[in-house]
Simulated scan of single mutants.
Amino acid sequence: MKLKNTQGFTLIELVLVIVLLGILAATAAPKFINLKSDAIIANLNALEGSLKSANQLVYSKSIVQNETIGDGVISIGNVNVDTYYGSIKADALNIVNAIDSSFTVLTSPTASFTTNWGVYKVPNAGVQIFPNGYDISSNCLLYYIEADENNSAFYSQTTNGC
């Protein structure tokens, strides 16, 4: 008994299918994978965690120094951090002193900077912290308000523009 001579796909057909799949993957992948945005949001989450941890340490030290009512000052290493009711006072320089990272104190929420983070003091309303390459118009920031006699410290992220 003799078998029929069967043929598979030709090399040309295989190459065409691979090329078409490559084109589809190249156009569809960026819509489903946004690694830059995910990385920026992860960095904001990490910064918020660092700020919360720093605030816990500052509060603990404020209790020891009896600085938990109203304005106070504690020293961390060789820098001073202003406190208000035991939490880090919402001032750009205090954020820089309390967290060891690469910050620039901004004079405007639209100012550009080259460090990892820009910190802007909102008059009478806390601080906004922006990742490098973003500003107030981008809707990508961490917002912090110090504690007061009735409320604990407040943290909020806006990430829809990251």
Rank of each mutant, 00 (worst) to 15 (best):
G22P: 03
S112D: 12
S102N: 13
S101P: 06
N55F: 01
F103E: 01
N97K: 04
L21Y: 11
F9E: 09
V15D: 02
L21H: 14
V15C: 06
K31Y: 15
S53E: 12
P109T: 06
Q65A: 15
F32K: 05
A46I: 11
L24C: 10
G49S: 13
I88N: 03
Y59D: 00
S53G: 14
V15A: 10
I40H: 05
T83L: 06
L14S: 08
S62C: 05
A46Q: 14
N94D: 07
N34D: 15
A54H: 04
G22L: 03
T107H: 00
V81I: 09
A39F: 15
S102L: 05
L35M: 13
S112Q: 10
L57F: 15
N97L: 03
N45Q: 11
A26M: 06
S102F: 08
L93P: 07
I41C: 11
L24E: 01
T10K: 13
S50P: 07
S62H: 00
S75F: 03
N97C: 02
Y59G: 03
A92Y: 05
D38N: 14
E13A: 06
S87C: 03
L11P: 06
G22D: 00
N45R: 12
Q65V: 10
I41M: 11
V17H: 04
G86D: 09
F9P: 03
K36M: 06
K89Q: 11
L21Q: 13
N43V: 15
L20R: 00
S53L: 13
S102K: 07
S37G: 13
G72N: 00
L16E: 15
V19M: 12
L11T: 12
A98E: 00
I76S: 08
I95V: 10
N94H: 02
N80R: 03
V19K: 01
Y84P: 02
A28P: 06
A98K: 05
K52F: 01
S108E: 06
T104W: 07
S112M: 08
K61E: 10
L14C: 10
L51F: 00
N43C: 09
F113W: 04
N94Q: 04
F103N: 02
K89L: 11
V96G: 07
S37M: 11
S108H: 04
D91E: 11
D91H: 14
T83D: 05
S53D: 13
A92F: 07
S60G: 15
D82A: 15
T104P: 11
A28I: 11
S62L: 04
Y84M: 13
Y85P: 05
K52H: 07
S62F: 02
K52P: 08
F32S: 04
A90P: 08
E48N: 05
N45T: 00
N80P: 09
E48T: 04
S112H: 00
V81G: 08
Q56M: 14
V17F: 05
A29K: 14
T114F: 08
L14R: 09
L24K: 07
L14K: 09
A25S: 13
T107P: 01
A98D: 07
Y59I: 02
P109K: 03
N78P: 06
I23P: 04
N43A: 14
I95Q: 01
S101Y: 01
P109Y: 01
Q56T: 15
V19P: 04
N80V: 11
I88Y: 06
V58F: 12
F32C: 08
A54C: 05
A25C: 09
L21A: 14
A25L: 10
V73W: 03
L21T: 13
S37T: 12
E67F: 09
